[in-house]
């Protein structure tokens, strides 16, 4: 607009009131110190800068202000100002695709002329069905977009990202995982994890009981694996990430030995999210713990178990 020498032009600005939770999330920040090597690759199509984004739960009202700033003495003709709230699944594989699962539009001003800077209060009260998610192939985003439409010169827009997280209640049924596995006449173990479902900051506690050991075990580890499956039907894209290999035993136990397991999920690099099942028929995200025994010839014996993660607190 200033190309034509009109000087300072009008601008739109979206400001969000602090969310009811009062929580913010740093997006784009490297996860933890130790994750630099093993962490997930940076997201495609993502801004590299670190920013603070307010966190909302599924039912929180999103409130804020849209301010229109006009230079002194100018007037602005417009065809109307609207603010949209969009919930969107973005896919990066197979030519990708963008699917808005939520789109709310609010007319904040009818077409006309504005002579002075102006502020419009905003309030969106709507269902946010999915959590924000930044995966390898999939991203779930929520954002507000304000648009001022004009005839000749282009529209004025402003965007603001928000983060949605769902707090779940403690699952009522939460059985332990208990299983006896083995290779005949070689190795028999019984493992037990206290629960099947874990909060994101919980500790996986369990024990491995060795019933028969005929192989020379070098060590044993517990891996946390995240599997993202996007698409449906024949076009499913699975992407697995090992978030951590947590060594839980050094050396070879003898028969009758019982090795404790204790893994702090908090210490797992790569941000953990709750388990997502079939988000908008587009993707799922599951977590597994994989018990791996490695023998002296580096052969690996493993057993994978799904665990369900859920969110206790925002963050």
């Amino acid at each position: 607009m200033s190309i034509f020498g009109f000087g300072a032009s009008a601008s739109l600005n979206l400001t969000l009131s602090p969310p009811p939770s009062g929580e913010f999330k740093d997006i784009g920040k490297p996860n933890t110190v130790s994750s630099t090597k093993d962490g997930p690759p940076p997201l495609a199509n993502d801004s590299p800068e670190v920013r603070k984004v307010p966190i909302y739960t599924g039912t929180d009202k999103v409130e804020g202000t849209l301010s229109l700033t006009l230079p002194q003495g100018k007037k602005l003709d417009h065809l109307g100002i609207k603010v949209e709230l969009i919930g969107r699944v973005e896919m990066f594989y197979d030519r990708g695709g963008v699917h808005d699962f939520t789109s709310l539009v609010k007319e904040v001003d009818a077409p006309g002329t504005i002579y002075d800077s102006k502020e419009y209060p905003l309030s969106f009260d709507f269902e946010k069905p999915y959590e924000s998610y930044r995966g390898l192939n999939v991203r779930v985003r929520y954002f507000l977009r304000a648009t001022l439409s004009r005839n000749y010169s282009g529209n004025l827009t402003a965007e603001k990202e928000i983060c949605v997280q769902h707090i779940t209640n403690e699952p009522e049924i939460n059985n332990s995982i208990k299983m006896e596995v083995g290779i005949e006449d070689c190795l028999h173990i019984e493992f037990e994890y206290e629960r099947q479902k874990y909060g994101l900051t919980d500790v996986i506690v369990g024990k491995i009981f060795f019933l028969l050991v005929r192989i020379k075990i070098k060590h044993m580890e517990l891996a946390v694996i995240r599997r993202e499956s996007a698409g449906s039907g024949q076009n499913i894209y699975n992407e697995s990430e090992t978030l951590i290999k947590y060594e839980i035993m050094d050396g070879a136990p003898v028969r009758g030995e019982c090795i404790p397991v204790r893994l702090f999920l908090k210490g797992v690099p790569g941000e953990l999210t709750p388990t997502y099942r079939n988000v908008g028929n587009r993707f799922s995200l599951k977590y597994y713990i994989n018990l791996v025994l490695v023998d002296e010839e580096d052969r690996r014996y493993f057993k994978q178990q799904e665990v369900t993660l859920w969110r206790k607190v925002l963050g």
């Binding site: 050094d250 030995e257 019982c258 204790r262």
Partner: peptide
């Protein structure tokens, strides 16, 4: 005492 069980290699243990 429970956790140190995790080292089963004799010398290291």
């Amino acid at each position: 005492i429970e956790m140190v069980k995790c080292v089963q290699y004799p010398t290291r243990g």
